[in-house]
């Protein structure tokens, strides 16, 4: 594939708006196109895309590819992979960026397999190498124990999924101009072999983890479902969200949508309170963006203290009830 040009961002929308990850990707793409002096484009699929397209332009897209069809209203592994492939073939980008989201995790490998593209999953840093011919990706490997720096092949399309919160959006401007290209009729209808028969959202109470300014997270040390009531109480008092590690999810104390880490959510609150969490790298990799970390763990040698600003080496059962009581009186 020759004549590769520009960077294509695969957009994700919800409720007629771009998802934060798409803002971030557009911001990242802008940084890169500054150097390679090419365009950043955005792919949007689904229905009623005009207002979203404007949002995309204001967040930094030079060009919007639109595929407007009910076929793409909901995510489907077959139709999305097919569509992204089709658009890549038309747009011929050097680099195709997706979020390391449900969509990206599944679509990126398939698209790259079909296109013969290079691929890097879960990138946290991305730059153009000095020759301006390839990209240099940094991604955590071995559960966050190491970082790998990987370069793409010059002259070959590269597909990357990018971890939440590793790129910054630009401040949006309605004055930005962009071109809208409608590809709806240029893409063959997809062949769908995986049929969605049921969809369930997990009830997430309260604040969205990825947006929360304060998170109180409980780990395996909490011991049981009841213990998480303390965690919820503290989170409420602090105006924050509840998070967790893999262990309580595996034990069935809390739903998996609260899991933070490599395979869960990536968070970056101002305050992260880790209670009964050992600090395994797979978890820690998801909280590194936190401004201030407080850890409560009865084992003074627990790894979590290594990444914390403030530590309490004690049994949470002794400490939390007291803290919650005092907070209650102080706040009321």
């Amino acid at each position: 594939m020759n004549n590769l040009r520009g960077i294509l961002v695969v957009g994700e929308t919800e409720g007629g708006k771009l998802n934060p990850i798409t803002h971030e990707l557009l911001g990242g793409a802008r940084e890169l196109v500054k150097i390679i002096e090419e365009e950043a484009s955005l792919l949007l699929m689904g229905e009623e895309l005009a207002p979203v397209a404007q949002e995309g332009i204001s967040f930094g897209a030079d060009k919007i590819f639109i595929v407007e069809s009910p076929l793409y209203r909901d995510y489907n592994p077959d139709s999305y992979a097919h569509l992204i492939c089709g658009v890549c073939k038309k747009a011929n980008p050097r680099l195709c960026l997706m979020g390391h989201t449900d969509l990206g995790r599944e679509a990126a490998p398939r698209v790259s397999a079909r296109l013969g593209a290079g691929i890097c999953m879960d990138c946290v840093e991305l730059r153009v190498d000095s020759s301006k011919q390839s990209f240099v990706q940094t991604r955590p490997v071995f559960g966050g124990k190491a970082m790998a720096e990987i370069t793409s092949l010059p002259g070959n399309i590269q597909i990357d999924t990018v971890r939440r919160k590793s790129m910054s959006p630009i401040s949006p401007s309605v004055d930005r101009k962009g071109e809208i290209v409608d590809l709806t009729n240029e893409i063959d209808p997809p062949m769908i072999r995986a049929k969605l028969v049921n969809q369930r959202r997990q009830e997430s109470e309260g604040i969205d983890l990825e947006k929360a300014k304060v998170i109180v997270a409980g780990g395996g040390g909490i011991g049981n479902r009841e213990g998480f009531e303390r965690i919820k109480e503290l989170a409420q008092l602090l105006g924050g969200a509840v998070g967790t590690t893999r262990v309580p999810v595996d034990e069935g104390w809390v739903p998996h949508s609260l899991e933070i880490g490599q395979t869960g959510k990536i968070v970056s609150p101002d305050l992260y309170v880790a209670v009964g969490i050992s600090g395994a790298t797979q978890h820690v990799t998801g909280i590194l963006g936190s401004k201030y970390i407080i850890a409560i763990n009865k084992d003074p040698d627990a790894n979590i203290f290594k990444v914390s600003n403030l530590g309490v080496a004690a049994d949470y059962k002794e400490v939390l009830p007291r803290v919650i009581e005092s907070l209650k009186t102080l706040i009321q």
């Binding site: 290079g118 691929i119 790998a148 720096e149 070959n156």
Partner: peptide, 17 residues
């Protein structure tokens, strides 16, 4: 299709009080 250039062990340590 890709080349590994560097593999490093990062340090995230904060000073814990």
């Amino acid at each position: 299709r890709n080349q590994l250039m560097r593999l490093i062990i990062p340090s995230y340590e904060r000073r814990c009080e």
